[in-house]
Simulated assay, not measured.
Amino acid sequence: MIDKLKENWFVVLVAVLLFTACGYFVYDMNKDKLPGKKADGKDVVAELAGTNIFADDLYDDLYGAVDSESSLGTSMLYMYFERAVADEAVPMTSELKSQISAQVSGVRQNYQAYYGDQWETYLLQGLQASGYTSIDDLEAYFTHYLKLQTLKHENYDANLDSLFSKIHEEKKSRTVSHILVKMTDPDNPTEEEQKKMDDIDAALASGTDFAEVAKQYSDDSTASAGGALGYVDSDTSFVTAFKEAALSQEKGTVGDWVQTEYGRHKILVTETDKAALEADESIRESLYTAIDSYYPEMGAKIVWDKAQELNVTFSDPKIEEALKAYMNITE
């Protein structure tokens, strides 16, 4: 049957194969990536957060809890379904390969630096929480992740104007820069700290560009970038006093000094125009994050629509029902 399916230009097959009254699903493009092991004499089809998922349990979950959005079996089904669609929809390119390689290398280095001799143990735990079973699956993880992101972001780009409209209107979207004078006791600036603030005020009053003043005086890591913090809206995780000031200012204005636990800040709102924000490639990833947050079910809808475009087939209507319920698809 698999060979026959492969004669078509594309088929994603989600099948339930019965083995001594036990079942599990596969799709033909990714069948060799599914875990294959036994524990306590039973087939293990996946591992999630360190817990073995057995074929018979998965079968029971799929067929016994079709209407349950929290079904473990359905969540695993969606995980593989999502990966299958993204894998087929997004071609592997040299740029994508480079991104995957960079991510894998970066994660390995970070885990080794942070966890020392135990880095593999902690990395494996993280992979298992996403349904993978070994350290060697790290490349597969980033392949799936980056392909899925590409699929979603292509859709976001094509519909950016409509998707961003409500976010921009409701959440006061803007780009912001700042200058920080770091202080041990922000309530009581030292003479040196006060002089630095006075020098900053004098430089800005004289017409010196905000970015140049930030490069010269700011104690923040953003100084080299002219104090640029990038995209900010009402959901941004900033200290309350800072965020409130940033969201209250008009474009092009430099506000009064704002006190936070880090010291005193001068804030400049650099852009608020919707079209300008959409055109700014430097904040595009932040816009994607804002869209993800505002439309939490959109990612699943994009996967489902792409699956329909690619002519997904199901071996049993119960599986389709389970997926649609889990993904909140109401068509």
Results as ranks from 00 to 15, higher is better:
217 Y>T: 04
228 A>I: 05
216 Q>G: 02
283 I>P: 00
33 K>T: 12
247 L>H: 04
195 K>W: 10
165 S>I: 03
86 A>Y: 03
238 F>L: 14
173 S>E: 00
163 L>I: 07
6 K>D: 12
121 T>W: 08
321 E>Q: 15
96 L>Y: 09
2 I>L: 13
162 S>L: 10
16 V>C: 13
20 T>N: 15
222 T>H: 13
151 L>R: 01
324 K>Y: 02
3 D>C: 02
18 L>T: 10
232 V>L: 12
244 E>R: 02
45 V>W: 09
22 C>Q: 14
6 K>T: 09
79 M>F: 09
47 E>N: 02
247 L>Q: 00
327 M>L: 14
51 T>L: 02
255 G>A: 01
228 A>N: 13
313 T>F: 05
190 T>D: 01
89 A>D: 07
93 T>W: 06
69 E>L: 11
315 S>V: 00
250 E>V: 05
243 K>M: 10
152 K>R: 15
201 D>W: 06
310 L>A: 05
187 D>P: 00
304 W>Y: 14
62 L>P: 01
34 L>I: 14
189 P>F: 07
153 H>P: 01
174 R>G: 04
239 V>Y: 11
165 S>D: 14
264 R>N: 10
40 D>C: 00
152 K>M: 14
283 I>A: 01
220 D>A: 14
69 E>H: 11
251 K>F: 05
88 E>S: 08
9 W>H: 11
301 K>A: 15
325 A>P: 03
189 P>S: 08
127 L>G: 09
4 K>W: 13
55 A>C: 00
202 A>G: 01
227 G>P: 00
66 V>D: 06
